[in-house]
Design a protein around this nucleic acid. Structure first.
Length: 943
RNA sequence: GCCGAAGUGGCGGAAUUGGCAGACGCGCUGGAUUCAAAAUCCAGUUCUCGCAAGAGAGUGUGGGUUCGAGUCCCACCUUCGGUACCA
C-alpha cells in the first residue's frame, strides 16, 4: 500500500483518537484556556451539508493549532434538536419525533466524526435530552422569578420588587398580579396564525402571503394567550454590551438597528373642548407631565419635537384605545369598517404591495400644545400600535410618510424647517412637492425661528417639560419576545394554572418546584392536530394535564417553548455536561467563560445572538454566570454556493434570446422582449466564451449567457454531499478544499476540480515523504538525516513563519498556498532533511490531521502529534545575502538591480546609476529626484 | 427606498496595508514517460503587437492626491446579501 489512501488512513486515526480520548478537554483548565464554539446544527433528515464543515474545519484548525501551542482547549459539539420538521414527520407517520430526531443525530454524528474534527465528544448534548430540558426549564424559572429594576438597570429577584402601598392594600391577589406584570416572563394575548383547514396553529415561516405553505389554505390571525419574555427591558444593556465585543462591525450594526434606539419627546395634545385649552394648559404646569397619558390628552412620540409647529394633523393606530372616544357619530361607520379591514390584515399585508396610504378621519380634533391650533385626528394603519405611544403628530412638510398621506387626503402642509443652503431639491421643497426630512433652520416656529434643528429640539423639549406638556423620551424598535409555540416538539413550560372544581382556571398560577424538574412531554397516541386553536398538548391525558400540589388543583401549561430556547445557553452546559445538581458549576463556568471564538452563519446575526445575550445577562444579573457577554469574538463563515452555471434562454422556436433582453415576470419566470415565457438551457463551459465583461454563446457574440452560481438547493439539484466527497477524495481533501476556496467570511462557489487539486497536493505530500514504490509504508530514499542547506533552511523557516501567522489570522487559504510552495520546492530536491519534513508535517496537521498523523508515525514517532510543540522559526534563517531591487523611472518599472542586502542608500544609488538600462533612460535627461525605499525598490524622476 | 459586503486573467483567489499586480490552485497548451492510456514529471499560460529582444495597455467607470495607487480621497455603475411605513 504505497499510495496515499485516505479511505484506509482516516477511519484508523479517527478510532485512535476516539479510543485514546485524544481531544478530551480537562474539566478545569490548568493554564491558558481557549473556548472555541461552533454554532450547533439542527440535525435535519438531509444529513450534513458542505456548508457545515466550512466553519467546523476552521474552528478545528484553530483548536488543533492552539493545543500544539500549549493552550487548554474546550471544543464541543451538540445538536439543536427541537424543531418543526421532526414534528411534521411525526404527524405524518405517528412515530414519536424523538425517534426521527435521534436517527438524524446519529447520522450527523457519524458524518462529523468522519471529517476528523477534534471535538470532545463526551460533552456532546442535544437540546432534546431530558436532562438538558430540565435545565432549560430551570432557566425559565429564573426568568419568571426576575423583574428588571430600571433604577439599577439590572434584573433582580421578584421578592425584591417594591409593592406600592395602594396595591398592597388590595390584598394578596392584587400583589400577585402586580408581580406578574413585572416578571421577565409574563403572559399576554398575541396574534397567532390559525389555519382552520389544517386545524393547527402555524409558525410564521409556515405562512406565505397569508396562506399556509402546505396546502395553500387561508390563515387567520387570532389573539391567543402567549408567554412573552421582556427582552425590551434589556434593550439598553444589549446595545451597550456590543461595544466591547470583537464582532464584525456589520453584525453589530444589524443588532443595533434591530434594537433600534431612538430619542425624542413624548407630547400630550389636548382632546377636550378647544375653549378649555388654556385652562388645561394652565393646570398642566401645576400637575406636571403624568407617567401615563390622562383621559383628556392624546400622547404622541416624536423624534422631531422641533417640528411641532408644522404638525397639521394626527394619526392614531387602528388598535389605539382612544379610537372609540375620538370617533364622532358621523364617522363611526367608516371608522369601524376601516378598523375591521385592518384587523384582518396580517403584518405582512399591511406592509406589502404598493403601500398606498389609507386612513379615515375620526371626526375629532386635538389642540396643538405649542400654538393652540386645532388639528384633525385620523386613523391609519401606517401608524403601528406597538411602537411609541401608537399615535403620532404628522408633519407632512418634514416626514416622507406624513407627506404621502397629506397629499393623498389633501391635508395642509406647513413648512417649519428651512433646508441648509447646499441641500438638493431646495426648489421642490419650497414648493411643497417634496418633503425635507433633514436638519436645517427653524421657520414659522414662533420664538424658535432662525435656530438650528438640534437647538430647537432641545429648547422645545425643555419648554414642554417645564409646562408639563411633554418630556424627553427614548424608544426602541425591539419588541418583547413571543416565547410560546402551539407545538408538541418543544420544552414544556414548568408552569401550573390553578383550576377550580369544574376545571376552569382561577387566574392564579405557580411554577413547578425546581427539584421536580424536568416536566416531560406527555405521551400522545398520535400527533395529529386536534382542530382547535390551542396547543397540541391539550390532547394529553388528564393524568399529565392535572396536578395536585399543596392541596390545590392545577392544570399544566400546554404551550411549549420555541426552538430558540435550547440554543440560548448550550455553550454553558458543554462546560459541565453531566452535572445533576446545577446547570453548570460556577467554578467551571468562571474558568471557561466567555467563549473566545464563536463561528457560524450570518443568518443567526440577530435573533439567536440577541436572545442568548439576553438570557446570559439575566443569568449574570442573578449571579449564575460570571461574565456579562457570552461570546467574545464572533466570525461568520460565508455561504458556499453551487458550481458556476452557464444559462442560455430559448424561445419556443428554439431561438436563442440574449440574456440582456430577458426579464423576470411576476411569477419569477424568465420572459423575452415580447413577453413570452422562455426556456432555460444549461450550457457546458465549452459552449460559451468571454466577450468583454460577460459571457456569450460560442461563435454568437450577440447572444449573452448568464454565468453565475446559485445557493445549493434540492430543487436546483446542485447540492454537494460531503459523504460522496469523503468517499472519492478523503476527509482531509474536503477539509483542505473548503479552507483553500477563499477567505472564510466570503461567499464562494463550489468547484469539484478544485477538490481534485487539493487531493493532488496531498498526494504530493505523501510522495515527498513516503516511498511510493515500496510494498510497505516506508520513508522515501530522499528523506535523509542531513543538515539542510541555506536555501532549504530559508524555505523551511519562511513556511513556518507564514503558516503560523496566517493560521493565527485565520487566513487559511494563504497558509495552504504556502504549504504548497514548500512541497513544490522539496519534491524537486534530491535531499529532503528529516527535520524539515517533520516540521512540515506538524504545520500541516491542523489542516489535514489524518495524513499528518500517518506521516508522523512513518517518520518514526509512536505518539500522536496532537500535542507536539508547534514549530518555531528563526529570523536569521530568513535573511538573504543579496536582493533584487526594481528600479522605476517616472513611475514605470524599467530595470532590476542585484545588490548585497546590507548595502547602504548611497551604495544602492550608485548601483542604480551604473545600470545600462538606467543610463539609457537618463540619456539627455535631467535627474530630478531619487527615492530609495530600503529593501523594496528605487524610484527615479527625470525630465 | 434604506443598510451592509464585494467588483483583480477562462475560473477560485494572492498581494508586509502606498512599493515588481496576478502568489497558490483549477482549467488550458506543449513536451517527457508509455505499445497506448491513466497517473506522474517538466515547461508555458493577463491582453494586444512582435520570430525574438522588447514595446504598449491593464485591478468595475470617471476624476483626484503621490516619485509611485488594486490599496488613499471624490463622484458614479454593477452584483450579491439583509431589511421594510418604528414617527
Amino acid at each position: 500500500m504505497p499510495r496515499y489512501n485516505p479511505a484506509e488512513i482516516e477511519p484508523r486515526w479517527q478510532s485512535f483518537w476516539e479510543q485514546n480520548k485524544t481531544f478530551a478537554a480537562p474539566s478545569l483548565p490548568s493554564g491558558d484556556k481557549l473556548y472555541v464554539l461552533d454554532m450547533f446544527p439542527y440535525p435535519s433528515g438531509d444529513g450534513l451539508h458542505v456548508g457545515h464543515p466550512e466553519g467546523y474545519t476552521a474552528t478545528d484548525i484553530v483548536c488543533r493549532f492552539a493545543r500544539m501551542r500549549g493552550r487548554d482547549v474546550l471544543h464541543p459539539m451538540g445538536f439543536d434538536a427541537f424543531g418543526l420538521p421532526a414534528e411534521e414527520h411525526a404527524i405524518k407517520t405517528g412515530e414519536h419525533p424523538r425517534v426521527q430526531t435521534e436517527k438524524n443525530i446519529a447520522t450527523f454524528t457519524r458524518q462529523l466524526k468522519m471529517l476528523g474534527f477534534s471535538y470532545d465528544w463526551d460533552r456532546s448534548l442535544a437540546t432534546t435530552d431530558v436532562e438538558y430540558v430540565r435545565w432549560t426549564q430551570w432557566i425559565f424559572l429564573v426568568l419568571y422569578d426576575t423583574w428588571f429594576d430600571p433604577e439599577s438597570q439590572r434584573g433582580r429577584a421578584i421578592a425584591e420588587l417594591p409593592i406600592p402601598e395602594s396595591v398592597a392594600a388590595q390584598g394578596e391577589n392584587a400583589v400577585e398580579a402586580y408581580r406578574d406584570a413585572h416578571r421577565l416572563a409574563y403572559e399576554d394575548d398575541a396574534l397567532v396564525n390559525w389555519c382552520p383547514a389544517l386545524g393547527t396553529v402555524l409558525a410564521n415561516e409556515e405562512v406565505v402571503d397569508g396562506r399556509s405553505e402546505r396546502g395553500n389554505h387561508p390563515v387567520q390571525r387570532l389573539p391567543l394567550r402567549q408567554w412573552m419574555l421582556r427582552i425590551t427591558a434589556y434593550a439598553e444593556r444589549l446595545l451597550e454590551g456590543l461595544d466591547d465585543l470583537d464582532w464584525p462591525a456589520g453584525i453589530k450594526k444589524l443588532q443595533q438597528d434591530w434594537i433600534g434606539r431612538s430619542s425624542g419627546a413624548e407630547v400630550d395634545f389636548y382632546i377636550g373642548p378647544p375653549a378649555e385649552f388654556e385652562d388645561w394648559k394652565a393646570r398642566r404646569s401645576d400637575t406636571g407631565f403624568a407617567s401615563a397619558a390622562p383621559e383628556d390628552a392624546l400622547r404622541v412620540y416624536t423624534t422631531r419635537p422641533d417640528t411641532l409647529f408644522g404638525a397639521t394633523y394626527m394619526v392614531i393606530a387602528p388598535e389605539h384605545p382612544l379610537v372609540e372616544r375620538l370617533t364622532t357619530p358621523e364617522q363611526s361607520a367608516a371608522v369601524t369598517r376601516y378598523r375591521e379591514a385592518a384587523s384582518f390584515k396580517s403584518d405582512r399585508e399591511r406592509t406589502e404591495g404598493d403601500r398606498t396610504k389609507t386612513g379615515v378621519f375620526t371626526g375629532s380634533h386635538a389642540t396643538n400644545p405649542v400654538n393652540g391650533q386645532p388639528v384633525p385626528v385620523w386613523i391609519a394603519d401606517y401608524v403601528l400600535a406597538s411602537y411609541g405611544t401608537g399615535a403620532i403628530m404628522a408633519v407632512p412638510a418634514h416626514d416622507i410618510r406624513d407627506h404621502e398621506f397629506a397629499v393623498q387626503f389633501g391635508l395642509p402642509i406647513v413648512r417649519v424647517v428651512e433646508p441648509p443652503a447646499d441641500a438638493e431639491d431646495r426648489e421642490a421643497v419650497a414648493e411643497g412637492r417634496v418633503c425635507f426630512a433633514g436638519h436645517g433652520t427653524a421657520i414659522a416656529s414662533g420664538p424658535y425661528d432662525g435656530l438650528p434643528t438640534e437647538q430647537v429640539k432641545q429648547q422645545i423639549t425643555d419648554r414642554l417639560t417645564e409646562e408639563g406638556l411633554g418630556r424627553h423620551a427614548i424608544n426602541y424598535k425591539l419588541r418583547d419576545w413571543l416565547f410560546s409555540r402551539q407545538r408538541f416538539w418543544g420544552e414544556p413550560f414548568p408552569v401550573l394554572h390553578e383550576v377550580d372544581a369544574e376545571g376552569n382556571r382561577t387566574g392564579r398560577k405557580r411554577t413547578v418546584p425546581a427539584e421536580t424538574l424536568p416536566v416531560d412531554l406527555p405521551h400522545l397516541d398520535d400527533f395529529k392536530p386536534h382542530g382547535r386553536p390551542e396547543p397540541p398538548l391539550e390532547k394529553a391525558s388528564d393524568e399529565w394535564l392535572f396536578v395536585e400540589l399543596d392541596g390545590r388543583r392545577y392544570k399544566r401549561e400546554t404551550n411549549t417553548m420555541p426552538q430558540w430556547a435550547g440554543s440560548c445557553w448550550y455553550f454553558l452546559r458543554y462546560i459541565d455536561p453531566k452535572n445533576t445538581e446545577q446547570f453548570v458549576s460556577p467554578e467551571l463556568e468562571r474558568a471557561w467563560m466567555p467563549v473566545d471564538l464563536y463561528v457560524g452563519g450570518a443568518e443567526h446575526a440577530v435573533l439567536h445572538l440577541l436572545y442568548s445575550r439576553f438570557w446570559h445577562k439575566v443569568l449574570y444579573d442573578r449571579g449564575h454566570v460570571s461574565v456579562p457577554e457570552p461570546f467574545q469574538r464572533l466570525v461568520n463563515q460565508g455561504m458556499i454556493l453551487g458550481e458556476l452555471e452557464y444559462t442560455a434562454y430559448q424561445s419556443d422556436g428554439d431561438e436563442f434570446i440574449s440574456s440582456a433582453e430577458v426579464r423576470e415576470n411576476e411569477e419569477g419566470k424568465a420572459v423575452g422582449p415580447a413577453g413570452n415565457v422562455l426556456r432555460t438551457v444549461k450550457l457546458e463551459e465549452s459552449q460559451v466564451e468571454k466577450a468583454g465583461d460577460h459571457f456569450v454563446l460560442s461563435g454568437e457574440p450577440a447572444i449573452r449567457v448568464d454565468a453565475r452560481s446559485f445557493k445549493m438547493s434540492k430543487s436546483r439539484g446542485n447540492v454537494v454531499n460531503p459523504d460522496a466527497i469523503v468517499r472519492d477524495y478523503g476527509a482531509d481533501s474536503l477539509r483542505l478544499y473548503e479552507m483553500f476556496m477563499g477567505p472564510l467570511e466570503a461567499t464562494k462557489p463550489w468547484n469539484m476540480s478544485g477538490v481534485g487539486g487539493v487531493r493532488n497536493f496531498l498526494d504530493r505530500v505523501w510522495r515527498m515523504i513516503v516511498d511510493a514504490r515500496a510494498e510497505e509504508v516506508t520513508l522515501a530514499a530522499e528523506v535523509v538525516d542531513a543538515e539542510p542547506d541555506e536555501d532549504s533552511l530559508r524555505m523551511l523557516h519562511r513556511t513556518i513563519r507564514s503558516v503560523t501567522e496566517d493560521t493565527e489570522a485565520m487566513s487559511f487559504n494563504t497558509a495552504i498556498a504556502r504549504m504548497m510552495e514548500f512541497v513544490n520546492y522539496f519534491t524537486r530536491q534530491e535531499q529532503r532533511p528529516r527535520a524539515a519534513m517533520e516540521a512540515f508535517v506538524l504545520l500541516l496537521s491542523p489542516y489535514a490531521p489524518h495524513l499528518a498523523e500517518e506521516l508522523w508515525k512513518t517518520l518514526g514517532h509512536d505518539q500522536t502529534l496532537a500535542y507536539q510543540p508547534w514549530p518555531t522559526w528563526d529570523e536569521a534563517a530568513l535573511v538573504e545575502s543579496t536582493l533584487e531591487l526594481p528600479v522605476q523611472i517616472n513611475g514605470k518599472m524599467r530595470a532590476k538591480i542585484t545588490v548585497p542586502a546590507d548595502l547602504d542608500q548611497a551604495g544602492v544609488t550608485e548601483a542604480v546609476m551604473a545600470n545600462d538600462r538606467v543610463q539609457a533612460a537618463l540619456e539627455g535627461k535631467k535627474l530630478v529626484k531619487t527615492v530609495v525605499v530600503p529593501g523594496r525598490m528605487v524610484s527615479l524622476v527625470v525630465k
